[in-house]
């Protein structure tokens, strides 16, 4: 578990380090996700060395974003002023996204 955590935080740090030095417009954690995938593919690290920590983190992923959800209370009035256009735009866009991705794979899958 300790080794797995060290790998996860190591790749996070590596991602942050790269964004810090190269000032690219992508978050360090997303870069870390990409890098750990590449490292696993190239067999630089082994799955069983990171799996204990990654499984636990994914299991509780939804818990971790609760504080941001609670933060919505601070902006409640701003969002409430625009609730109608926001709802229309977000729902319409979500339905379009659902349909486009579903129809492409349904027509072309083997």
């Amino acid at each position: 578990m300790l080794k797995a955590l060290a790998y996860i935080f190591g790749f996070l740090l590596l991602g942050e380090l790269i964004t810090y030095f190269f000032e690219i417009p992508i978050a360090g954690n997303i870069l870390g996700m990409f890098l750990i995938f590449i490292a696993l593919r190239l067999k630089i690290i082994k799955l069983q060395d990171v799996k204990p920590a990654s499984d636990k983190l994914i299991k509780y992923l939804v818990l971790f974003f609760i504080p941001y959800g609670v933060g919505l209370m601070v902006y409640f009035e701003i969002v409430a002023d625009y609730w109608m256009p926001i709802s229309i735009a977000v729902i319409a866009s979500t339905v379009i996204t659902l349909y486009i991705s579903a129809i492409i794979i349904e027509k072309l899958e083997r």
Partner: peptide, 29 residues
């Protein structure tokens, strides 16, 4: 205040960072 709650909340949301890295492991699997 939200800010007071978030003094502790921050410790929870901190784990979003490593969780995104963990998604890379999930993807590989």
């Amino acid at each position: 205040d939200f800010e007071d709650y978030n003094r502790g909340g921050k410790f929870i949301s901190f784990f979003l960072g490593p969780s995104v890295v963990a998604l890379g492991v999930f993807f590989y699997e």
